[in-house]
Write a protein that binds this DNA or RNA. Structure first.
Length: 222
DNA sequence: CACCAGGCAAGTA
DNA sequence: TACTTGCATGGT
């Protein structure tokens, strides 16, 4: 998948951190708000999600108990700006229902499980895929599970660090093999990769202007 | 007008 | 396993 196994990831982190500075992700006030945002931002710009989250806050629905109680059709209307709003209302309700039925609505106890157990349980909930699960594990439960997203793929392919498009688990495994399991490091690196990914658009063939340009495969050492 | 944005599930071969 | 399709608003 790439020739320079170790050192590259750490070098990427050091470069991006020096260039952009600390990101302090996730943009949310509470673990529950992280979960809501993680579901709402699926294939959707954060700006559209921010409107929906603000809407929920104005209606007093940014708590687990309140979201459990709100009718799904009303919820769908309030999150309209985030797109796929019927699907996402269903997903949010599915998550609430799972915690109610398996943990007596004790969200903290649900999030207190060890990393792998929590991740696999999240993946069994309808509407929670690998990226959403890892986002919740890393930013809501504060446990070390690396988050891969479209920007991670994009930054890596643009710089020639991957030949074929790797699967989610392959790319995640690569990060987790190269780095020590440190929550703060995982949180910052993912945020920095998103920030970097914003420098490109989907069809931009190269990475001009980004702080990693000289690390492109072929020009990088080793 | 077309294309894109911090995915996921279900169906098909 | 590896495609394909539906889901949907808001910005460029």
């Amino acid at each position: 998948m790439m020739t320079d196994r170790n050192g590259l990831i750490r070098l990427i982190f050091d470069r991006l951190h020096g260039f952009f500075g600390p990101q302090n992700w996730w943009p949310a006030d509470t673990p529950f708000e992280v979960i809501v945002g993680a579901i709402l931002t699926q294939n959707t710009s954060w700006k559209n999600v921010a409107h929906a989250v603000a809407n929920l806050r104005e209606h007093g629905l940014l708590s687990f108990e309140a979201l459990c109680a709100v009718p799904e059709p009303l919820l769908a209307e309030l999150i309209r700006s985030s797109g796929y709003y019927n699907q996402k209302a269903r997903k949010l309700k599915a998550f609430c229902r799972h915690v109610c039925e398996t943990r007596h609505a004790d969200l903290d106890r649900f999030l207190a499980q060890d990393t792998d157990t929590l991740r696999s349980e999240l993946l069994r909930i309808r509407g929670v895929g690998p990226e959403t699960a890892d986002s919740i594990v890393l930013y809501a439960a504060h446990k070390p599970s690396f988050v891969v997203d479209t920007y991670t793929h994009r930054v890596f392919s643009r710089h020639g660090w991957v030949q074929e498009s790797p699967s989610y688990d392959e790319l995640r495994g690569f990060f987790m093999d190269c780095l020590e399991a440190d929550v703060g490091l995982f949180q910052e690196l993912h945020a920095l990769l998103v920030r970097t990914g914003h420098l490109f658009c989907r069809k931009t063939p190269r990475c001009g202007g980004c702080p990693l340009e000289d690390l492109r495969a072929g020009t990088a050492v080793g």
